[in-house]
Design a protein around this nucleic acid. Structure first.
Lengths: 195, 195, 195, 195
DNA sequence: GATGAATGAGCTTTCATTCAT
DNA sequence: AATGAATGAAAGCTCATTCAT
């Protein structure tokens, strides 16, 4: 119905794709407009600056990743199995929709100056962080995970997975990402589990 | 005597400082020149392009970080203690000389297009990676660490620590970095140790 | 209606004027933009580099000069008269629209590095060369001109006329260019005619 | 004895070589200094600016070319033969020492702004022009050449030969320069001879 | 005379943003 | 809403020239 919503999302998708592959500064607004067959001027009717567009994208990707984690959270299963599912999910995303994770790594994590105003703390990625927090607290509640500072656990999860996707992108891994799921899930479980 | 050596290093330091705080694209060559009281033209006598400067910096920082790890490798002690030392060292660096680690996270990891030619694979950070490889292999050799793919372990180490320093930079951690050393070192040890 | 066509041509004219009087390297893009009341950035919307602009100009001037020669080719008259007409035409151009001939002499002929890619051989001046080739071959066909290598004749024609315009520009000629038309046309005719 | 003379000439030679192949603006002073193993600063002890160097070179080349023509002038023979010798000499120079003729065509003829002050008229090439003037006047005096304005004849000679060398450089000639000597000498003789 | 590090103005080119249509 | 020509500040980089040694 509301055409603006449809068009805004198309802009987010196109910009996400370009930012995540070329980087924030190497992508121009005309690039984005051309990639989706829209005029530069009209793009500015939807997002009033390149920075605002970048901030909307990180929320957009965070929502999508968060929704995926939520699906795991809502499934049955013990924490060990859920860790494996999250790792598998993350790597699956890195293969099938790499733009979201790459945006995280290459744009959000890297160009702090862009996100300085409006994305303080983890504000713009809260959808994603919240789901991992829920996962972690349930794991602690049911006694499977050691009770520790959430960010000690979150940093492990995200740093490990993000770092690994980076290594994969660098071409230093011998095998496909999926091959490492079990190893990594085990490492994470060992790190976080109740002794 | 040889002034060029001294000056090159001063440029590396000044550029490293600016790149690591403002990002690669938000730092201009005139910024760097001004920061060290040098003319733009003369800076180009030492580094013939901004990209080349960026590549030299990553080698420079990798060497410095690698040398620190080597000192731990050469000390006595079991692997569990060494993990703790490496984590402490990393966080100490993140506090006292954050430019090296931030450059890693914000410039090297993020702006892949800059390092595409000449830093393939882990070429420009090999000094650092090599030391961690030595650490890991010694841990495996003496039976303390599980024998697994090196990059599975490396990704854990570096992703975890890097991610944590990022979280710290975002101001989401309640306490000082040093406070988390034990937790994180334990998590890593649990993840990697021989069962 | 189509403003782009009009504007492109205006740029060609303005740049041609400046390049031909000041030379390629002594003319800057801001000079050209200012001369026509246009912004630097917008000029790049029409010609994506200074070199490309220079190459388009030589084609543009070659077309204009070629069209003039064609008019002579299409007129009635014997070859001797046509030679005189071409010399007169050339000198008239050198007086009324000197930019075309000066561009030829000062930019195209001189700055070979600029035209290296894309103007190999006589590619960018073919409109002009072709008309002279037609003139020459018709002269041979009707028995008035000696049958010799085309470029031996072309070099005479163009070198002579170009050199003479250069001398005129240097201020070493005592009289107006037009004064020399008969002498020069006769010299050329004598040089090329069938014995 | 006087070392300055020796060094000055070496600079002229090195600069001539570079200017004539790369053009005036594409050749830098450091290029010249490096080409002859001299320091930039010292080069400025001999020639106080790039423009002055360029002006000295055109005199230098003009002297050398003039001396060659003088040798022909001083030989025995009729004018027709001398024309042939001059053409042959010019093409021989274009093959064996192309720097002089190319400097003429690519630097002197092209970058008028450089020679504006100090080389007015044909001041800096007078050695060369003078010899051709002697040749021409002797040809007239002995009745072989038509008495016409000197520059009408000079323009023919120089424009023709220069234009032909240019065409040769462009690679549009099918055969070696020497192949065209007879044709061209005949053309010139026909153009200038007494009817 | 000889060196070459140092200067800084000025070049070409880019691109976020605006605005008349 | 939609267009894309237009703007102009600012970037990376060059190079003639100087000057302390």
């Amino acid at each position: 119905m509301d055409k603006r919503i449809g068009k805004s999302e198309k802009i987010l998708d196109a910009a996400l794709m370009l930012f995540s592959t070329r980087g924030f500064y190497a992508t121009t607004i005309p690039d984005i407009a051309k990639a989706m067959g829209m005029s530069v001027g009209n793009l500015y009717n939807y997002f009033s600056s390149k920075e605002i567009l970048a901030k909307e994208i990180i929320k957009y990707s965070s929502d999508i990743l968060g929704a995926e984690i939520r699906r795991v959270n809502e499934e049955e299963g013990n924490t060990k199995e859920k860790i494996r599912k999250i790792v598998a999910l993350y790597f699956e995303m890195a293969s099938s929709k790499p733009q979201h994770i790459n945006y995280f790594l290459r744009v959000y994590l890297a160009n702090r100056e862009v996100f300085k105003d409006g994305c303080e703390g983890m504000l713009c990625v809260s959808a994603f962080v919240t789901e991992l927090m829920i996962f972690f607290e349930e794991g602690v509640a049911c006694g499977e995970l050691r009770n520790q500072d959430f960010f000690s656990a979150f940093g492990l999860f995200m740093g490990y997975l993000g770092g690994f996707v980076f290594l994969n992108g660098e071409g230093v891994l011998e095998k496909d990402l999926n091959h490492y799921v079990d190893d990594i899930a085990l490492n994470i479980y060992n790190a976080l589990r109740h002794p």
